[in-house]
Nucleic acid binder design. Sequence first.
RNA 1: GCGCCUGUAGCUCAGUUGGAUAGAGCAACUGCCUUCUAAGCAGUGGGUCAGGGGUUCGAAUCCCUUCAGGCGCGCCA
Length: 555
Amino acid sequence: MTEIVRKILSGALVAMGAPLPERIEVEVPKDESMGDLATPLAMSLAKALKRPPRKIAEEIVENIRDRGDFERIEVAGPGFINFTFRRESLYRSFSELLRREEAFFRKDIGKGRKILVEFVSANPTGPLHLGHGRGAALGAALSNLLAAAGFSVTKEYYINDAGRQVSLLGESVFARYQELFGISYPFPEDGYRGDYVLGIARRIKESEEEKNEGGKYKGLNFEFPQSNYFTSYACQQMLSVIKSDLEHFGVTFDVWQSEKELYDKNEVSGAIDYLRQKGFVYEDEGATWFKATLFGDEKDRVLIKSGGQHTYFASDIAYHKKKVDGSFDELIDIWGADHHGYIPRVRAALEALGYEKERLKVLLVQMVSLLRSGKPVQMSKRAGEFVTLREVIEEVGADTTKFVFLTRKADSHLEFDLEVAKAASAENPVYYVQYANARINSIFRNAAEKGFTGGAGINDANLLPLLSEPEETRLIKKILLYPAVFEAAVQAREPHRITYYLQELAGMFHPYYNRHRILTDERELSSARLSLCRGVASVLKDGLRLLGVAAPEKM
RNA sequence: GCGCCUGUAGCUCAGUUGGAUAGAGCAACUGCCUUCUAAGCAGUGGGUCAGGGGUUCGAAUCCCUUCAGGCGCGCCA
């Protein structure tokens, strides 16, 4: 619908010889009586054309040639142009939607452009927590949206399996391992104290026993932080836990990129050398620095510490270099908001490498605070006490968890109340949306029993005019708006817009269902209403699928 | 101290990239199941969009400032 309006508007502007704006705003008016769609176009042109907005609006309206789809096109308020569709036009579009379904919803925005979405990327030093879950839900939904919009999407998880944190994990496991033999080994100061660390130690011990090598590392003195058996074993274990957690959550990745591999393949040193050749690297006080200030960062950043170890930033440069070199047109990184200070330096590095920094878009996901019945759940990462994503999924379910995450825009703080999320009630918006779809499917089952060719198959455009109730017209208009919502969500990279739309659509269907019977004695009316239901269900299913949430046929 | 994010109904949050009279859910009160699923529906009340100033035809939205909360500001990751 919005496309039709945009088209005739740009046609009118051309006819007038007026400049075409980059984007013609089309919106749904506040009040239904104002029409179906409206544009503030004339008002935004007022300054450039140096004429009153209402005059411009009138002129635009006069220049609209093809108005066959509209019952009314009128100028209102300070200069809005309001459009009201003819019913026949709505029915024609709706019939087209039923026929083409997914193809009708989509617009090819990406045109095959390659886009890499990196998300979660939690250190493999412990299980995923709720904040990671939020990033996972967002990344997965965004990837779905982008792929549906014609982008070629790669989903990637960056594994920080090199460096201090993983070796600290290894040493923590090593300490627990020694304890299993009654040997006291000083537990590392910032070590990981969660129960899972002990679990890994036990597993190492058990696997030794199986191989008749019991106590192989008992009492030995390993050099940490150098990588060794304990580090790599623990890391592998944690990674498989993380993978299985994500699988439970219904989130998958195309690429698991290891940081360690970047070192092993000399890509880190390669990236540093590259920057050095360009003159952006210098030595000072025994350390190797990157001239980040040349590219807008606050200060220069260390790549190699005076002790010889690389910083996290060094491998991150190599990683982002690898990504852009992979001929991706756009990179999206989804990070926790606590990393926001890191953006300028990564952007600076990209620019120094010779890429436009606009290629990288960083989406920050704000913190999640976990509540139970309104009271904060105490978590202490240091003591290893925290509620994991896995536990939350098991308690409230993956669909609900995802839906709650996707009901907020990324950069707003989120309160996640376990009891509220668990309640199978109206407080829980995911059920509200799923329930609408389940109800419709229930109607379809009844319809089939009553000998209707089935809601699923019905598409008789001639019957659609029987849908004359105000609720029906409103539903049709709402459904026809879905493609515009989809497009806006993709452009803004904001999946939550889909979530809200689905709630609104369900919020129109339930009252309709309560007020009007779908299956009546009038066969033709019933058929028409089944078609309407199919349109609703089709959109609900599509939207839920994009969000990564199930759309059960029975509840 | 500097930077980023946030501040909208009692609570949790939207607000279509600056548009018309600011929205939803929950909570509160009142009703609706012998007809397609009551995880539903109908109705009622609720606002200084944190405060102030500015930009313009028009601001919850952009700029400045004050206040409040969160997060950053390492040769940590």
